[in-house]
Write a protein that binds this DNA or RNA. Structure first.
Lengths: 317, 317
DNA sequence: GAACCCTTGTCATACGTATTACCAAGCCGT
DNA sequence: ACGGCTTGGTAATACGTATGACAAGGGTTC
């Protein structure tokens, strides 16, 4: 390549790095670019990384690829990263931890953007880490959705409609985000009935909702920890012959695709996933620069659809 | 590191590569391992890649991260890759093509596993490529779901129930998989009514299904190109006061989470996504070995749930 | 006892890049 | 005319690994 351009390899490197200002005459510069184009030259990443001792790559760890929020999170993170010359490599965590460990171990990445995995932070050695959607008390900067605020919005909406007896179908998962959702709701409706799902899937949620609703003093509204659980609540309501929202109001959380696929469409809270990814990546890059980013909490937005209404006894006859 | 073990760097390399058999005395071997553990030694991937001229990494290109099938596809592919010492890096394609191009350009990957993107194959230069879920006439080995067989299974199921007039809500996407679905259904029910959605989302599917159903001679069953579209058909049916499956049978395709979240649960075809990923990765690794893998078609499985039944006029009164 | 082989390592080198130090001119000013 | 400055470029080096060539010492074989 250097031979083809008729100059030394050093010159090629300088020109291609864009540092030719005042160092290389325009003609030679042109010649180098010409040769590069002709030969289809591409810099070798391995060599560059070796020489520079850095990879300009960060690892995005997601708990699972099936979750609906990770697409936008990735998009937001990747865009910010790209604007700073960084690449993003994705790794689904629980499926198989091996590849990520090897990525970390072999110094192939410079930092980690982790979502919802407080326990595993120490696994990344002393690499800079930013966690998303996790306990702010974690030993790393946290970028979160304001789930407490979102849940308060739901509670406020239901209170305004006139609901007094509330049920809560809670996700049986030990994660910060669900703990906060539960606490925020308990604060707003101290006497709410709570039933745990045994897992986050529709069938389990249906069972839990049935235990909540199949009783004489059933609540007039059920708040679900996420949209998927709300789908289970729909099924329970249908099984009991309850009309939504006539006999029962139902709310979800996250505003995934499912929310508008259900009938009636689900009142829920939309979370700014793309902004979360972007904000978290910004924080991680700050961390890589040696600065100390502060934690952030991003507000969600209450989306009122057709699954909530006034309680039966409060409706005009 | 070599100093710490009291041996030369060459010896370290030999020992750690596991090629010490008959070349290094067990004591030295032990000393090297000891030193490696004490220093927490990790090989530098960039240096290794540079020296070997290969990265043992393949790129998995997915059209979008939100699709429900990519988790299993990744899992299957990653497991096979790992068993052969390869890593997998994910790249969502349409969101942003930049990073992938740079990955390819900088020789950071050795091959590409592409899903559902016939048009873009040439973008990968002369890298080995295996495509999933794509036209077998593509200039690369194709690993596919047997969607034609799946659609025939649906058609057979409906025919057996007694349905004669069929509607088809087709996805308005120019992709091999949807073209085949349409052709297979048209073969089984030559006179079927077809309506295209304007996009793959619930609202558009609802509109298309309404145009199909809101007529005197409406079909007794609608076949939808995927589960999401089926959700739209559910909404249309509800809007027209049609009971599923009493007045109308509905079928989906793919068996995503949504299928069991709907009420009634959706009859659909389950596709072996994890096997697809594993098979495709196997083919790609064969290609890297210089062999010529043949195309594969993986059968799906008809899952009969509650959304299909005999047509109204055929039911016992 | 000499030629040979086997064992156990080490030396030297190459991969492709970025960068520091250096060098050869040409051009000033005094 | 000569030292110093500027301009335009090259030589040398280092990053960490893998590997083919080579060397020293000890045993075996005739």
């Amino acid at each position: 390549m250097a031979r083809a351009a008729g100059v030394s390899q050093s010159t090629v490197s300088i020109v291609l790095a864009g540092k030719a200002e005042g160092r290389v005459t325009p003609e030679t510069r042109q010649a180098v670019h010409e040769a590069a184009r002709r030969l289809g030259y591409r810099p070798n990443l391995a060599a560059r990384n070796l020489r520079l001792g850095r990879t300009r790559t960060v690892l995005l760890v997601v708990p699972t690829l099936t979750g609906a929020v990770f697409g936008p999170i990735y998009a937001g993170a990747a865009e910010v990263a790209a604007s700073r010359g960084f690449g993003v490599v994705l790794h689904p965590w629980p499926d198989d931890a091996g590849p990520a460990r090897s990525q970390v171990d072999t110094q192939a990445i410079e930092g980690v953007l982790a979502s919802s995995i407080v326990g595993g932070i120490s696994d990344f050695g002393d690499l800079p880490v930013v966690v998303m959607d996790s306990d702010p008390a974690a030993p790393a900067p946290t970028i979160n959705f304001d789930v407490a605020g979102g849940m308060r919005a739901i509670a406020g909406h239901l209170a305004e409609l006139g609901h007094r007896r509330i049920g809560h179908v809670a996700a049986a998962v030990d994660a910060w985000t669900f703990r906060v959702r539960g606490e925020a709701l308990a604060d707003a409706f101290p006497g709410s009935l709570i039933r745990q799902t045994t897992a986050i899937d529709v069938a389990a949620a249906r069972q839990a909702a049935l235990r909540l609703l199949d009783r004489p003093d059933r609540p007039s509204a059920v708040v679900c920890d996420d949209d998927l659980i709300a789908a289970g609540a729909y099924k329970a309501a249908r099984a009991l012959g309850l009309d939504i929202p006539g006999d029962l109001s139902v709310t979800g959380f996250d505003d995934v695709l499912l929310a508008t696929a259900l009938e009636p469409e689900l009142t829920t809270v939309r979370l700014p996933a793309e902004r979360l990814g972007a904000t978290a990546m910004t924080a991680l890059l700050e961390l890589l620069d040696g600065r100390r980013p502060s934690g952030v909490s991003l507000p969600g937005e209450l989306v009122v659809r057709a699954s909530t209404g006034p309680p039966a006894q409060a409706r005009p006859r």
